[in-house]
């Protein structure tokens, strides 16, 4: 699997559309580099999913984008500003759903949102936002009495407040039930349709497949693969499976990995027609994100102790 970076041509073509532009980002904890030279670009109006295993460096990357995490090296632009310098201006234009953050236990969804509204330069309607995230019926319940999923919905309500230009969602569906997940997915699509750019991290591949216009797979602090979903999936071969049955002969298992799905499928069908064979349980499937993801993880060797220490 190849590590990819935006080409100069690609960068020139999209420079005016970049909402997030990261070059050579390094975030280090002591001698350990949690993020090790990451290039990232998120274009206006797209949903970009940063995938990776736990500890891949996704959250550290997002924290550097928000100015929370000092960077050891690299250049970061968010909405045209450096988060180290223009933290306030970036926050005024972006909404953030962090992976783990709490509320005052004595607050209610409505009082938490009213506080947020009073602090924000973005304008919105408390009742409408609670309705959008499906918390209207729980508006007066103490936060400490909300379920985990309901608290995540409240997280989301704060992030989408006032329809920011950029929304950063860190593992947004972690711990959510299917209904809450569907609500969130719907909201993300709605936001994108309204022109909001969404940068999300997830290790749920299905989520990325459902929502993302482009994805990047991060592993051991580096971006291993990135592109549109189709581009990423094209990096792994598609698969054709079948049972080939010919009179008087034992069944033959067909299992073909191919980068030319259409051509090889046609060849298989023509061969069957020519020989009079029957193809049972014929399946032709493109590579899944799951396969690409596992391929990235498998193809990256475990660092030696010395390497780990030097990182």
């Amino acid at each position: 699997m190849t590590t990819t970076a935006a080409t100069p041509a690609e960068r020139t073509r999209t420079a005016d559309d970049l909402v997030v532009d990261v070059r050579g980002l390094v975030v280090a904890y002591g001698s350990f580099r949690a993020v090790d030279g990451v290039d990232l670009d998120v274009r206006r109006g797209e949903v970009f999913a940063l995938l990776g295993t736990n500890g891949a460096g996704k959250t550290s990357t997002l924290e550097a984008l928000q100015g929370f995490r000092p960077r050891a090296a690299g250049q970061v632009d968010v909405l045209g500003e450096d988060p180290k310098v223009s933290t306030r201006r970036i926050r005024a234009a972006s909404g953030v759903m962090v992976q783990e953050a709490g509320f005052v236990p004595e607050a209610t969804p409505v009082s938490a949102l009213q506080l947020w509204a009073s602090l924000s330069s973005r304008v919105d309607d408390v009742d409408a936002v609670l309705e959008r995230v499906g918390l209207a019926h729980r508006r007066g319940v103490l936060v400490k009495d909300l379920s985990g999923g309901e608290r995540r919905r409240l997280d989301l309500a704060l992030a989408v407040w006032g329809a920011p230009d950029l929304i950063v969602l860190d593992e947004p569906t972690a711990g959510l039930d299917p209904e809450s997940r569907a609500t969130l997915w719907g909201l993300v699509r709605e936001l994108r349709d309204g022109g909001t750019t969404v940068l999300m991290t997830t290790h749920h591949l299905e989520e990325a497949e459902q929502l993302a216009d482009r994805v990047a797979i991060m592993h051991r602090g580096r971006i291993a693969v990135r592109g549109t979903l189709a581009e990423v999936l094209d990096q792994r071969p598609a698969r054709i499976t079948a049972v080939r049955r010919l009179a008087g002969r034992p069944d033959e298992q067909v299992d073909v990995r191919t980068h030319d799905l259409q051509g090889d499928l046609l060849t298989l069908l023509l061969d069957a027609q020519r020989t009079g064979a029957e193809l049972h349980r014929l399946r032709a499937t493109p590579a899944s994100l799951d396969e690409v993801f596992h391929s990235v993880v498998r193809s990256t060797p475990e660092p030696s102790t010395a390497e780990e220490a030097s990182r």
Partner: peptide, 10 residues
């Protein structure tokens, strides 16, 4: 690079 006033929101 987009600017902070990308979206004409309130």
């Amino acid at each position: 690079m987009s600017t902070l006033t990308t979206n004409a929101r309130q």
